[in-house]
Nucleic acid binder design. Sequence first.
DNA 1: TTTTGATCATCC
DNA 2: GGATGATCAAAA
Length: 201
Amino acid sequence: MAHALHVQVPIDLSRHKGWVGGLLERALGATAGSRSAPDFEALGVELKTIPISRTGRPRESTFLTSIAPRTLADERWPTSTVRSKLARVLWVPIEASPDIPLGRRRVGSPLLWSPSAEEDRALSDDFELLRRSVSEGWLDGVTAHAGQFLQVRPKGKNAAARRWTPDPDGDESPARPRGFYLRARFTAGVLARHYHPASLS
DNA sequence: TTTTGATCATCC
DNA sequence: GGATGATCAAAA
């Protein structure tokens, strides 16, 4: 695929972490670039590549969106940024065992997905929990341990990055920038329900 | 082995 | 610096 698009294949992803995602964007004609819009704007579809281990499970969590605490405080799940990002996703599984050279990794059958009622409910619960903590100023108290499927993790230049953020005193102080991520447990469920329905109870 | 916290490239 | 795209690597 890279060859067909005249794109150089890096030796590894350590300094090219978004390379696979970018390649699929080019191959499929994603239109949004670095703007905050769905990858396929006219279709309202978000493209997400998902690295798959030898055992067929996602190797990584999935980044959704960064957190602006003041904005998040006024959000509610039905109209939230997180939910809109997940409204319609094209999941593209990609082989990602470290021992498979980058240029040899296969692309799996993609899945055009929208959350089921149950999935939406589960995410809603996590979202409300996390939103409350952040809104009350406890951003630095929210760790990646919170949330069954949705979690809050650092998303910044490095560990030293800081942004002015509301704190519990009603004041504001510098806090590390964070974002919402989908746990691998969740995407594993999505793929299993679609590709291996017989394996589920 | 799995998960959390840290990090990297590019575009604007 | 923060949006996009994610994976790396230390800790649990």
